[in-house]
Amino acid sequence: MQLLALAGVHFIVDMFAGMPPAILPAIRDEFAVSLSRGGFVLVALYLTCNGVQVLTGHLRAGKRSPLFLHVGLLLAAAVCLLGILPRGRGAFPAMILLAVVSGVGIAIVHPAGLRGVHRLKRISPGVSTAVFMAGGFLGYASGGAVSALLVSRFGFEGLYPLILGSVIGIALVILLRVRLAVEQREPNADRTQTIEHGLPFWFIAAMAMPAAVSTTILAVLLPTVLEELGFDLTFGGFSVTMFGLGGAAGSFVWAHLARKKGELFCSIAALFLALPFLAAYLVLINHRAAMWILFGVGFCTISAYTLMITLSRHATGPKLGRRMGFMVGGTWALAYVFFMPLLPAAEYFGTIAILRLTPLGYLLSGGFGLFLMLKVRATRCGRPDLREG
């Protein structure tokens, strides 16, 4: 039940995170902001919610109390208050402030949530991580569909009831007495048996980066691309939802496969398998039925990211809190740094032209992962069997 509660908390905060891209066309119309300014509001939100995770991932490392879960859930709901912002010249700085407050809340929940998952020793790391991450993917996906539906029918005031999600999340954490894992001082106490689980953490982070940039482009620009192609606001939201649903389903399937084949091998396979799905979607994007292909894209790309998080739990390098903070925050913060220069380029060349760059990131990540796997196998072949003699 505690795992489900943590997945539920992840669902709630990532639902808030998934709302702005889907309603960006409505934000631009309501507050009269350009694509670049609207995009920078999203960048402020995601840079905050991802960058702060790196800075706070190690805080309260010796505390079991889930204080950051409570505070984060409250702050994350600030994004639901778009309806109270002034129209006119003061709208843009007010949106930036709201994005930063919400981003801080979303940020401090993630490392704390993963520490809560890490404490559940009776469940295998691959399964528990998959469940936790699936909650986030479903939340992010639902945020797009729900917010687009509410805003299209009731305006931005329709987002107010979603604040109750934070209240429910806090209640679940308290009632189920969720506690967090404490950092271990003995690095060899939980030595894993596979060589790939001893990979240097920064190699795994480098593998994740190009894919994170592509996923950022896809998740943020897709609703705007579809709106420019003539589809309505809700279709863009449901398209992002389909992408997230594929990721949630794929996380469980790939986690099961990884128990036999290993997380590194499966993450590489998932990245390469995503390419034909993504290519097909980009060719058929003008057709409504192409939305279903996004399930396959998410099934592979998001699952690869989940597997890399599992690898990071057993990697060498920084402490657990910092590793989790960087993997669930730092990679995405850097991805948004790379994404920022693409906003002016999208206005000049068109959003669809930027969207067509997304296969490149997954190809680079898969290629680096393949290099890493060959390096692991070379190490395995060259290492003497200590059981002999």
Rank of each mutant, 00 (worst) to 15 (best):
G103A: 12
S239M: 09
V109A: 06
G325C: 08
I217V: 15
R313Y: 08
V225R: 08
M15C: 15
M324P: 02
I96Q: 10
A7Y: 02
P66A: 10
L138V: 13
A99Y: 06
A208G: 04
M1Y: 10
E388G: 12
A107V: 05
F16V: 05
A32V: 13
G158C: 06
G83K: 03
Y281G: 03
A130T: 02
A212G: 01
G39D: 04
L82S: 09
V9N: 00
A304D: 03
L245R: 08
L73Q: 13
P359Y: 00
L278R: 06
T316H: 11
V213G: 10
G317A: 03
P210K: 00
V173K: 00
V146W: 07
A26L: 15
K261M: 13
L164Q: 08
A78W: 13
A107P: 02
T306L: 00
G361D: 09
I302W: 12
E196F: 14
A94N: 05
I96C: 03
G330F: 02
F272P: 08
L222N: 03
A77Y: 02
L360K: 03
R259G: 14
A94H: 04
A274S: 15
V109G: 01
G126K: 09
R185V: 06
V54M: 06
H197A: 11
A171T: 11
S142F: 06
T306Q: 00
L273Y: 11
T379D: 05
L162T: 08
C266A: 09
L363Y: 05
L85I: 10
K260N: 12
L372P: 00
G366D: 01
S102I: 03
G103M: 06
Y160R: 07
I174M: 14
